[in-house]
Design a protein around this nucleic acid. Sequence first.
DNA 1: GTGGTCTAGACCACC
DNA 2: GTGGTCTAGACCACT
Lengths: 129, 129, 129, 129
Amino acid sequence: MFQLNLKTGKPIYEQIVDKFKELIISGILKPDEKIPSVRDLAKQLTINPNTIQKAYRELEYQGYIYSVQGLGSFISRPDQIMDLNKVEYLKKQIHNNICELLYMGIKPEEMEGHIKNIFSAWKGGKHND
Amino acid sequence: MFQLNLKTGKPIYEQIVDKFKELIISGILKPDEKIPSVRDLAKQLTINPNTIQKAYRELEYQGYIYSVQGLGSFISRPDQIMDLNKVEYLKKQIHNNICELLYMGIKPEEMEGHIKNIFSAWKGGKHND
Amino acid sequence: MFQLNLKTGKPIYEQIVDKFKELIISGILKPDEKIPSVRDLAKQLTINPNTIQKAYRELEYQGYIYSVQGLGSFISRPDQIMDLNKVEYLKKQIHNNICELLYMGIKPEEMEGHIKNIFSAWKGGKHND
Amino acid sequence: MFQLNLKTGKPIYEQIVDKFKELIISGILKPDEKIPSVRDLAKQLTINPNTIQKAYRELEYQGYIYSVQGLGSFISRPDQIMDLNKVEYLKKQIHNNICELLYMGIKPEEMEGHIKNIFSAWKGGKHND
DNA sequence: GTGGTCTAGACCACC
DNA sequence: GTGGTCTAGACCACT
């Protein structure tokens, strides 16, 4: 399903969380779709099931998936994730990152072009199915 | 000089690094300006000097400050920080954060407005001194 | 008859138990009224009959319904449910929840108003039929 | 520090969470007070450190404590816990529990007396220090 | 078979 | 010393 990098110092469970978030946000995993069971994914990635479970639990806390005992884990609908604190946090992150790039000398025009690309990629993306 | 928040779980040394980056990027701390000695800042924040040391080492590694034996630590010039890997990393972060907000249902127009504000705030900011 | 929510993590059989308790307490289901057979309800909710069975067993154990071989399951009379341990348990729950809200900073007056509403809603409710 | 009951089927880590919440809400543990380290409490209760850590992590998620690497875990201030969803949830719980008792035949006057006691106990409690 | 809890014990990052 | 991550493997509850 995807690659792990054990050398970065980034916890494995966080890498899994981020990877799933990417797959969900990009629209590759759709709402109510089933994701691999804890044990299956553990086998596939040859890591401990507890680590997967920790990742799934974190994803559930953040609203990206929901788990049902005896059935499995599934992707949530986007409106379940929305949270005002999170929105504020993400906006601040974007602000900081843009300012950092500008300070380092990136030309504003280049930056604005890059951001336009993000928006047009989004509009043309898979989420319009 | 600034406030620490022990409650976030974020390592203290990282908070110091981020705070300095903020002050540098926003233009409050200017190139070649001297920053407090390790001991002074440790006293002022009532934390362990080792923690400050680690923060300064990290800032130096990232290119934001430089140290001169026997004189102290100073702010670097912006072009010293520039690093292609970092630029790519920051761009990817911006991409991810914007997509996450869009996925959660934020309207693209709202998002674009928010970003325009960042640029105009930058252009009107202190870095034009 | 009612909606299930698989996403809460709450076991399905418990959701069914709680839903029945709600219907009984609010007076919508009246003493000695017949409730659907295990098989019918399972079909209607498209879930496994074993799950319904477990829910009914729990409701019977708690005194809310009684079963008659060959006839079906029926709502009990309120005095059948009364149980001193349970009364103590519920009182303690109420105590804990109120204290938690007060600790979090809810004003006592607001809290008292809210509770008054519960009582007046009860007095004006369906149980006086 | 406190008693565990391994026979109830209630997860140990939840019992620890609930116990701490009680101690915090009742004012016995005060904001910024240090709580035992993961290892110490594990030794004291003769259970696995991982179980304590899970409990502490849950308490942190719910806003009751905060943890600092290398320093320990501490009680949060009450306003950190406040959360609108939680308030709504607790109010609904109180509503349900009161209605359940009334349905079972508890006299409203008795119930109202009980609740008055809660409020007066609160007003006379330790939180006014 | 699924997710959830728990143990025993190792290792790392932070202060 | 502190909290945080990870493994290996057991057992339970739910569908």
